[in-house]
Amino acid sequence: MMSEKSSATGSDRFKYLQMLVTEFQDTDSDEAKEQVLANLANFAYDPKNLEDLRTLQVIELFLDMLTEENENFVEFGIGGLCNLSMDRECRDQILQSEAIPLVTGCLSSRREETVLSAITTLMNLTTPASSAQTTDAAVLQCMLRFSISQSPRLHNLATVFLQECCTEERVAQAEAQMLGHHPTALGIPLPKD
């Protein structure tokens, strides 16, 4: 009885999500795209939807947004990825899509929300196999800068990243490099216009 009902509502949900994806692809209006994107990213928050979203290839859709000029697109896209990447299956799928450079690119956004989502996404994407990429020197230096940021949220999150995703040696290394000759531009906000 219960399983019947839940499966029925489940398929309704799938149809709805499908409609959203279709609208996103068909519409020419940026406003509508933003709305749909935000909808999808919020749906990605509920783990019950993740299977449907994977089926609908929303991961690719979000990743696509990371290179858009419209900052809202980027923010919502990385927000969606942040939500999705909590799930291990989604994480693996994201990693297969060569997403890490796109995500680290978001660390240089001027929007704090975008940067925060990017940090959390990177944390989620860090596996033994991917850690070389997610915690390379440039990322670590960027996190070090964030960790002394005035913004408490940025400070907290970057600190957690440094504590959880990499060894102390690597952090020390990155620090040394930062004082030396290998500065990186990662995480330095892009100039306005």
Binding site: K48, M86, D87, R88, M123, P152, Q163
Partner: peptide, 26 residues
């Protein structure tokens, strides 16, 4: 912004655990 580092860490941990649990249940 009023969270401590520890708050933030636990929050993320809880969230990951929750998502994982739901995935397992599913």
């Amino acid at each position: 912004e009023y969270e401590t580092v520890e708050d933030t860490r636990l929050k993320l941990q809880d969230r990951r655990r929750y998502v994982h649990r739901v995935a397992l249940n599913k």
